[in-house]
Design a protein around this nucleic acid. Sequence first.
DNA 1: TAGATTGTTAATCGATTAACAATC
DNA 2: TAGATTGTTAATCGATTAACAATC
Lengths: 206, 206
Amino acid sequence: MSVKEIPDIVVGRLPIYLRALQHMAQEGRQVTSSQELGERLGISAAQIRKDLSQFGEFGKQGTGYNIEFLAGQLQQILHLDRVWDVVIVGAGDIGSALARYQGFSHRGFRIKMIYDSDPTKIGSQAGGFTVKDSGGMVAEIKAAGIKLAMIAVPAASAQVVANQLVEAGVQAILNYAPVNLVVPNGVHVQYIDPSTHLQHMTYYLD
Amino acid sequence: MSVKEIPDIVVGRLPIYLRALQHMAQEGRQVTSSQELGERLGISAAQIRKDLSQFGEFGKQGTGYNIEFLAGQLQQILHLDRVWDVVIVGAGDIGSALARYQGFSHRGFRIKMIYDSDPTKIGSQAGGFTVKDSGGMVAEIKAAGIKLAMIAVPAASAQVVANQLVEAGVQAILNYAPVNLVVPNGVHVQYIDPSTHLQHMTYYLD
DNA sequence: TAGATTGTTAATCGATTAACAATC
DNA sequence: TAGATTGTTAATCGATTAACAATC
C-alpha cells in the first residue's frame, strides 16, 4: 500500500485556489463551487475537483465549498498555518523592492534579513531592514534556522550564493537571477525572470 | 494537411534554451550538445532534441549544435529578431524596479513608458523615465502601437488596468499583481507573484 | 422533493522518455 | 574509419476531461 504521490503541477495550483478563495472571503462570500472558481481562474471545474480530491473531501454535494473552511484546509496542506521566515540575498533594485513589498505578511511570510556583498550597500536601509554583510550569511541563516530564501543578485553570482544558501540549510529558493541553478536533491527552486516570461509571449505576436 | 500546432509548454522552454546558449556564447564556446544543455538545465537530452525538432533541424550528427547559429534560430522563432517596446503600469516599488532594471535591453525589450494614476507619482522620475498620467494611457499606447505591457499596480486595480491595456491594443501582459486576470482570446498573460511561488514550495517543507 | 454539485471512475488527450537508424 | 550525436518513431507515462452515481 503506497502513499499517494501528489503531482507537483497540482501542488502549484493550490496557492492559486487559495488566493482566489481569500479574495472571495474578503468580498464577504460564504460558499463557492468548483464551477465558479474555475470561471474566475480559467481552469475547468473538473480539474479543481480532481485536484482537491487528492487531499480529502472538502465540499458538500448540492451546495459546494465553504470558502473559509476550504481556505483553511489549503493553508494547512501548504504548511501555511504558520509564518515562514525568509532571507533576501542582494540589495539592488529587486532585492530592495522585495524588502519593501507589503504583500508577504498576509500570505504567510516574514522577511527576516537582507544581505549584500557590496560595502557601499552594507549598513544601508532597505524597507526597514539594515543590509547585512553576506560574509556572515551562512552562519547567521544556520543559527536562525531559516529555510526559505530569495536570490536577487547578478546572474554571475547566483550559483555561488545558491551554494552558500544550501550550505546554510535553506531548502527552498526563489531565484530572480536570470540563470538556472544547480542544487542538490531535496532543495526546491522556483524562477522569476521577466525577460524569459516576455520572450515566451513574443512567440505569439508578430 | 494541417499546420503543426506547437504546444505552449514547448514554447515556454525555448527562452530557457536561448538563455543558456547565450551564456555559453559569452563563455566563448562554439558548439554544444543536447546532453550538455540538458545537464545545465535539468532537462533530458531527448526532450531538448524533441522540442527543437518541432521547428527544424538545427544540429549535426556527431558534433551537436553550433551555439551562435541555434541561438539565432531561437531568436527568430521567438520573434526576438527585433526590439519590442514595453509599457509599465504602476510606478510603485515593483514598477520602479522594473523601470530601472538593466536586464531587458540584452534580451530584446525596451521600456518605453511608465504610468501611474497617483498625482504624487506623476511627473516623478523612475529609472530615467518620467512617470506619466495613466489618464492618457490608452490613447498613447494605441498611438505608439505597443503590444507588450507589465502590470505593477495593486491587486484591486489590476483588472481595470488590464481592460484598458486590451482596449489600447496590448496583446501580451506580464502581471505582477496577485490576482488572476480575465482577458479576451488572443491576449496572453503571464503571472509573477513571489508569494504564490513561495507557497508552492512550502508544501515540501515541514 | 427537485435541483445542484460533489467526488470519482473511465476515457481521452498530451507530454516525456527510450531506443536506434542515419550520418557527420 | 570509429565514435558521437542528431532527428524521429514507438512506447510509456502522466494529466485532463467527461460523465454520472451519490447525496446534500
